[in-house]
């Protein structure tokens, strides 16, 4: 690279903005994918008239409830199909390739920031956002090897564009030396695990939202219109299948969150002399933990499984975002490490 006189931190910022731009393209590609999947549904309409019973392909127009169920069953098994056996949605593949590319820029930008600051890049709000979103994308891409969750692509890339772009605009601070209380291995562990938990909870959140939409569509299909509701939903697994996927991610996130809570208490004891003091941030970490414990319980409670528990997963993740943004910026407490003043 020619000597542009840029500092490593400035290069990092440039990489981050490049990543935001590519994520935006990925978002568009994934959105087109969802729209196209449902176009497939329309095209298949004619075919369906010939092929009375079952919709022709994934997302095909169905004429009976049995056909709707069959579509969903197929979509559910496609979700766990090995990568080579997945349906070849062109736009989804573009979305994923772009996401991988953006992720590389994003990762480079984050590591660059860490090198520039000579410490882990998660010590103020701007850096939490960098690392947190890197982890969200990493977990999403990692999970793709196991499950075909490309239908969450537009949600994930959209979320990352908003969080990362927002952080780069509103939270950016120059590199300053670490304040004494932050010089601790627990900064490395506690904050990292919290971000990891957030990544899994984000996936669970997205799946819970889809679960609710799918549930609604299923109801409409039974009550009024077999082909009602947003069309792309026809290419997705059943609400039940989405729910159990959401649950799988939520419990991983919950374990990490439990660990975050404990690690935070250990650190608080070293830094402030007590392991628990109902400091604002501690309170919110606790609230989130209890909400997810409630969600897990709800899944095991008659009358709460399904829609109601999905709402708890959604509320839980809203609390996570609230904790990261509003609580960090506006609430008073000992965790004054946003780096903003």
């Amino acid at each position: 690279m020619p000597d542009t006189g840029m500092s490593l931190d400035e290069i990092s910022v440039l990489l981050v903005w490049t990543a935001v731009a590519i994520y935006t393209l990925a978002f568009i590609a994934y959105a087109v994918d969802l729209a196209r999947r449902s176009d497939l549904a329309v095209k298949a309409k004619d075919a369906a008239q010939v092929q009375e019973l079952v919709g022709a392909g994934a997302g095909g127009q169905a004429t009976t409830i049995a056909a709707v169920r069959e579509q969903e069953r197929r979509a559910s098994s496609e979700v766990s199909a090995a990568p080579a056996q997945r349906p070849r949605y062109l736009w989804a593949r573009m979305g994923t390739s772009l996401t991988v590319l953006a992720f590389l820029f994003h990762l480079a930008g984050t590591i660059g920031r860490g090198i520039a600051a000579e410490r882990v890049p998660w010590s103020n709000m701007y850096e939490f956002a960098l690392t947190g979103t890197v982890l969200i994308v990493a977990v999403y891409l990692g999970v793709l090897f196991r499950y075909d969750l490309r239908f969450l692509g537009s949600f994930i890339t959209g979320l990352v564009v908003v969080l990362l772009g927002g952080a780069a605009l509103a939270f950016y601070v120059i590199v300053v030396p670490l304040a004494d209380p932050l010089k601790s291995v627990w900064l490395v562990i506690h904050v990292f695990v919290a971000s990891l938990a957030t990544a899994f909870l984000a996936l669970a959140f997205a799946l819970s939202v889809l679960q609710l939409m799918q549930h609604r569509r299923e109801r409409i299909a039974v009550e009024r219109d077999i082909n009602g509701g947003p069309r792309f939903l026809r290419t997705l697994p059943s609400a039940d299948a989405l729910e159990s996927l959401a649950y799988r991610f939520a419990i991983i996130g919950f374990i990490f969150w439990t660990f975050t809570l404990i690690a935070g208490a250990v650190w608080a004891r070293d830094a402030w002399g007590r392991y628990w003091g109902f400091d604002t941030k501690e309170v919110w970490t606790f609230i989130i933990w209890v909400l997810y414990a409630g969600y897990i319980h709800a899944r095991a409670t008659r009358g709460w499984r399904g829609t109601r528990s999905a709402w708890l997963s959604i509320i839980g993740f809203i609390a996570v975002l609230f904790n990261f943004t509003i609580v960090n910026i506006f609430f008073k407490g000992l965790h004054a490490y946003s780096g903003l003043s």
């Binding site: 109902f278 604002t280 309170v283 919110w284 606790f286 609230i287 209890v290 909400l291 414990a293 409630g294 319980h297 709800a298 095991a300 409670t301 008659r302 009358g303 709460w304 708890l312 609580v327 609430f331 407490g333």
Partner: peptide, 20 residues
């Protein structure tokens, strides 16, 4: 189970004012 759930949710809600 229902009581446990409701109490858990109440606990979460009741903790909020202390942060404000």
């Amino acid at each position: 189970m229902r009581t446990a759930l409701v109490l858990l949710l109440l606990l979460a809600i009741a903790a909020i004012p202390g942060s404000i």
